[in-house]
Design a protein around this nucleic acid. Structure first.
Length: 609
DNA sequence: TCTCTTAGCGCG
DNA sequence: AAAGCGCGCTAAGAGA
C-alpha cells in the first residue's frame, strides 16, 4: 500500500488518517504533532527481526522484534508512521520524549520504544486505569478482559477486528486492512482515556494511578534486563527430579496396575484398597467431595506404606511439570536470558503478578534458586522487607505492643510464642515449635483465620500439632495481647460488611464479593498497602540506579533483586536500603523502620537469599 | 478438537 | 455465628 490519506470509521465518526512512508511527510506530521498541547494517544505494531521470523511469538519480544508502525492520534487525525520506510528516527524520538502519551498496556510499547532509542517517555496506560476502575466497581474479574479489543466492545461499544493484530507486520507492502486497523487503535486509546477520567475522579484514584504509572519504568527495565539461567545446573536438577519421580512411579505402577498414574487412578485405588476406618477419615476435596490426593494429605498418612511413594511422586511431579523444562524453553535466543512478564495490578489487591514464566513462585530452596544467575562477572544484591504485612497491620491499627516490638527490634513471633506458652522470650528459639506455632497464628489471624482452619494450617504449613481447644485459647490470647489490632479488625470488618469496599493507603479501591468479603476486608488494606510500598521502592530505586551499571533483576512482592558488578555491591545495598526505607516512610511518615530492610548478596539468587 | 473448570501446589 | 488472603501454572476431566 502506498502513502495515502484515508478515513477510518470509529464511534460513528469518520476520522482522517494518514499512512506515512516518506520522510518529507513524516517531517510535516511530526511538526504538527510537536505543536500539540496535551496528551497524545499512541500504539505500535511490531514485526519480528528477519532471523526470528519463524520463532514463535517473536513479535512480542523486544529482543526478537522491532517496531514497524507507530500510530499517534491527536483527537483530530490518526498518524501511521511506517518505520520500514521512514528514516527520521531522531525526530520521532524527540517527539516521543517531548510530548505526553497514553497507550494501552503501555509497558509493552515502552519496551520497544526504549529499544528504538527513547530515553524517557511520559506514558499513561489505559490498561492500568481500567484495572483500577474495574477493581473498584466489580467484585470479581470473572469474564472481564482488559485487552484493547475487549474494551472497545464493552466500554466504547464500537468493536474493532483484531484479526490484523496477529497478521504479518513484516511484509513490506501492508494491506489496507492492516493500515486501517492500526490507525484505529490509538483512536480507541484516546476515547478510553476520555471516559476513564470520570472513573478516576469518581473513585479518587489519582494517587494510586500516579504510583502505578511511575512503576511502569522500573518494571519495563526489569523485563528488558531479564534474568540469567544456568542451563547446565538447571538440567542437572531436572534429571535428579526425574530420577526420584520415576523411582516412585515404578512402585506405584505395581500397586495401581497401570502405567498412567493420574489423580483419578489414585482415587480409585485408594477407594478400593484403604481400610474402611481410614477411608472414613480421609480428607475430601472442596467442591466435588472426591478423595483428596494432595501431597499434604499423603504426608498426613505416611505411616501407611503405600502412601510414601505417593508423597514423593506428587512432589517431584510438580517440580518436573511446573518448574522443569519450561524454564529452559523461556530462554530468549537473542539475549540468552529469561524475560518474564510483570503485570501491574495483576492482583485485585494491587500486587504485581508475573508470568511466562512466573518468577514469583519458584521453589525457595537454594538448590533450586541457584539456577538464576547474573551476567558474567556480576553479582546479585537483594533486600527484602522484614515481615512487611505484620508491620503494615501495626501501622494501620497503631497497636502499641506490635509497634513497640518493632521499635525495640524484637522478634514478634517469639514475643507471641512466649506469651502463649508462658515461657520466657529467651527460651523461645528461632525454629522452635512454639515460635513456628506463633508465626502461623500471627499471619493467619491477621486475616481472620478461625480455630478450625488454624489446626490444619499449623500442621500443614509448619508441622505443628494443635488441638481445637488449644487453638481457641491461643486465638483468645492473641487478641488480648494485640488488642488494638483486634479492634482495628473489628472496625474494618464491620465497615466492609456494610460497604463491601476495601481501600489501601494509596487509595486503591476494591469492591468485595458478597460471599468473600470477610477475609478480604482484612487482607486488602494490608497486602495492598504492602504492595504499594513495594512499587514505591521500585520507583525510588529506579531513579537511583538510572545511568549506573546497577540493573533491576527481579521483584517478589517484598523483595527486590539487583544485578551489578562486585565493586558496586555496597552502592547497591545502600540503594536498596534507602529506596525501601523511604518508600515505607512515604506511606507511613511516622512508621517504625528498625530492621525493616534486610539486604544480602551472592553469585546467584539461591546463594544471595 | 477445542475450551472451560476443578484440584492441587509453588511463592509471597 | 463464623469465616485467612493474593497470584500463575499444570493435568485431567467435562462439555460442546
Amino acid at each position: 500500500m502506498n502513502e495515502t490519506t484515508f478515513k477510518v470509521r470509529f464511534l460513528d465518526k469518520d476520522i482522517t488518517s494518514i499512512y506515512i512512508l516518506e520522510d518529507s511527510t513524516a517531517d510535516a506530521c511530526i511538526k504538527t504533532l510537536m505543536e500539540f498541547n496535551g496528551t497524545l494517544a499512541i500504539d505500535t505494531e511490531t514485526m519480528p527481526l528477519p532471523q526470528y521470523r519463524d520463532y514463535p511469538k517473536a513479535g512480542l519480544s523486544p529482543h526478537l522484534a522491532t517496531i514497524r508502525l507507530i500510530q499517534i492520534y491527536d483527537g483530530k487525525q490518526s498518524y501511521v508512521f511506517d518505520l520500514m520506510f521512514i528514516k527520521r528516527r531522531k525526530k520521532l524520538i524527540k517527539l516521543l520524549e517531548t510530548k505526553k502519551f497514553l497507550a494501552h498496556n503501555a509497558v509493552f510499547d515502552y519496551k520497544f520504544l526504549r529499544k528504538l532509542g527513547a530515553k524517557h517517555i511520559e506514558l499513561g496506560c489505559t490498561r492500568i486505569i481500567y484495572k483500577l476502575i474495574s477493581h473498584a466497581v466489580y467484585p470479581t474479574d470473572a469474564g472481564l478482559s482488559a485487552s484493547l479489543e475487549a474494551l472497545c466492545s464493552t466500554i466504547l461499544k464500537s468493536p474493532i477486528y483484531k484479526d490484523a493484530q496477529t497478521s504479518d507486520w513484516g511484509e513490506p507492502n501492508l494491506t489496507f486492512e492492516q493500515v486501517e486497523y492500526s490507525a484505529v487503535d490509538p483512536i480507541a486509546v484516546w476515547e478510553l482515556g476520555k471516559r476513564f477520567k470520570n472513573g478516576i475522579n469518581k473513585f479518587n484514584l489519582w494517587k494510586i494511578y500516579k504510583l502505578t504509572k511511575e512503576a511502569q519504568y522500573p518494571i519495563c527495565e526489569m523485563q528488558l534486563n531479564g534474568v540469567g539461567l544456568d542451563v547446565d545446573k538447571h538440567t542437572a536438577n531436572i534429571h535428579a527430579w526425574r530420577d526420584k519421580l520415576y523411582a516412585s512411579k515404578k512402585i506405584l505402577m505395581e500397586h495401581l496396575g497401570t502405567t498412567r498414574i493420574t489423580d483419578t487412578k489414585i482415587r480409585e485405588w485408594l477407594g478400593a484398597n484403604l481400610d474402611p476406618y481410614t477411608l472414613s477419615f480421609w480428607p475430601v476435596t472442596e467442591t466435588s467431595g472426591q478423595l483428596s490426593v494432595s501431597a499434604s494429605t499423603f504426608s498426613d498418612y505416611e505411616h501407611l506404606e503405600i502412601v510414601k511413594p505417593l508423597t514423593i511422586f506428587k512432589k517431584f511431579q510438580t517440580l518436573c511439570n511446573t518448574f522443569g523444562d519450561q524454564l529452559i524453553n523461556c530462554v530468549n535466543p537473542e539475549t540468552g536470558r529469561i524475560h518474564s512478564d510483570f503485570n501491574i495490578c495483576g492482583a485485585r489487591t494491587g500486587r504485581l503478578s508475573s508470568s511466562k514464566p512466573n518468577l514469583q513462585n519458584f521453589p525457595r530452596s537454594t538448590i533450586y534458586r541457584q539456577v538464576f544467575i547474573p551476567a558474567k562477572g556480576k553479582i546479585l544484591v537483594l533486600a527484602d522487607f522484614s515481615q512487611i504485612e505484620v508491620r503494615v497491620a501495626g501501622e494501620y491499627s497503631q497497636d502499641k505492643v506490635l509497634l513497640d516490638a518493632y521499635r525495640n527490634g524484637s522478634d514478634i513471633y517469639s514475643i507471641t510464642a512466649a506469651h502463649l506458652s508462658g515461657k520466657h522470650i529467651s527460651e523461645v528459639q528461632s525454629g522452635s515449635p512454639e515460635r513456628q506455632n506463633a508465626k502461623a497464628l500471627v499471619l493467619g489471624l491477621m486475616y481472620g483465620l478461625g480455630a478450625n482452619s488454624f489446626c490444619s494450617y499449623a500442621k500443614k504449613g509448619y508441622g505443628v500439632e494443635v488441638s481445637q481447644e488449644k487453638a481457641s485459647k491461643d486465638i483468645k490470647e492473641f487478641r488480648k495481647l494485640y488488642h488494638s489490632l483486634r479492634s482495628w479488625q473489628l472496625d474494618q470488618t464491620a465497615m466492609c460488611q456494610e460497604s463491601l469496599i476495601a481501600t489501601t493507603k494509596y487509595g486503591k479501591i476494591r469492591c468485595l464479593a458478597a460471599d468473600n468479603w470477610y477475609g478480604s476486608s482484612l487482607n486488602t488494606p494490608i497486602q495492598g498497602t504492602a504492595s504499594e510500598i513495594n512499587l514505591q521502592s521500585m520507583v525510588n530505586c529506579y531513579h537511583k540506579i538510572k545511568g549506573t551499571d546497577i540493573k533491576m533483576f527481579n521483584n517478589i512482592h517484598d523483595e527486590i533483586v539487583l544485578e551489578c558488578s562486585k565493586d558496586l555491591k555496597n552502592d547497591a545495598i545502600k540503594v536498596l536500603k534507602d529506596s525501601m526505607t523511604d518508600a515505607y516512610l512515604q506511606c507511613f511518615p511516622d512508621g517504625v523502620v528498625n530492621n525493616l530492610v534486610q539486604p544480602s548478596w551472592g553469585y546467584n539468587w539461591g546463594e544471595a537469599k
